[in-house]
């Protein structure tokens, strides 16, 4: 019989204040940490137990917030371990098939202030950067601040650095990269990521129910917008192109 390994054995849980537990992965390799925590996230987020109030996803960690009047931290840690182990074979699958999104991007210079910078860092031309980016299949890892879709899978030859000085006001719809990750700015605001384009679509709208049509686990591809298409698409709410049949 093959050795049976419990997924929860790889997870360290520490109290983080009087009402949160920090879950991290015991491994020296960041790639392993990211992979394992992605599994744990997909197991726990749909199954947060009684007493847990919310969770905050990090790239290598998961913060589980709880009501300390309802559950003690050690008790919650035990329940989380049980859930992780019982559902370890469901990791990544979730319950629903991932959706597919095709997002048009305008790579015009005025929308892509860091494109030249990214190109010279990678030793490519700007056109080659766009080609690599639109040729990438990305997966939404988690929803970051203000429901921003945080994605991995950018097919650049090397990771991209962050801005030395963060920008204070980046427009909604901006397509940004750092490392081999990409993210879309849902609302105007600051960022330290490199801005390489902009989509005319509205990716998050609080008047919609739910406010985004994407969720963690969905797949994303980007396509270059053709001249003159921007006005037709501007402000339209992003919806999935099709549901993948596994």
């Amino acid at each position: 019989m093959a050795a049976f390994e419990n997924l929860a054995d790889k997870i360290a849980m520490h109290e983080f204040g009087d009402s949160a537990l920090m879950l991290s992965v015991r491994d020296d390799d960041p790639a392993v940490r990211r992979g394992v925590i992605a599994d744990v996230r997909s197991i726990l987020l749909p199954r947060l137990p009684y007493g847990a109030r919310d969770a905050v996803a990090g790239l290598e960690s998961l913060l589980v917030e709880f009501d300390p009047l309802v559950v003690a931290p050690r008790q919650l840690a035990q329940v989380l371990e049980l859930i992780i182990n019982v559902h370890q074979h469901d990791a990544g699958g979730g319950g629903t098939a991932p959706q597919q999104f095709l997002i048009p991007v305008d790579f015009r210079r005025e929308f892509a202030p860091d494109l030249d910078d990214v190109a010279s860092e990678l030793g490519l031309t700007p056109a080659q950067v766009i080609e690599a980016f639109t040729g990438s299949s990305l997966r939404i890892n988690l929803l970051a601040a203000a429901m921003a879709p945080m994605m991995d899978g950018v097919q650049f030859p090397a990771p991209v650095s962050r801005c030395a000085i963060p920008r204070t006001d980046v427009a909604a719809g901006s397509i940004m990269v750092a490392g081999l990750n990409a993210i879309i700015q849902p609302f105007p605001g600051p960022t330290g990521w490199k801005v390489i384009g902009r989509t005319p679509l509205r990716i998050c709208d609080i008047a919609e129910q739910p406010a985004t049509s994407y969720t963690a686990g969905d797949n994303v591809r980007f396509m270059a917008l053709e001249d003159g298409q921007w006005p037709d698409l501007e402000g339209q709410f992003l919806r999935s192109t099709k549901v993948e049949t596994p």
């Binding site: 987020l45 947060l48 109030r53 919310d54 969770a55 905050v56 996803a57 917030e65 988690l142 929803l143 970051a144 601040a145 203000a146 429901m147 921003a148 985004t212 969720t215």
Partner: peptide, 12 residues
């Protein structure tokens, strides 16, 4: 405030 919103990037 909100519960079950921070997992989707919205602070409580």
């Amino acid at each position: 405030g909100r519960t079950n919103a921070e997992a989707m990037g919205v602070p409580s």
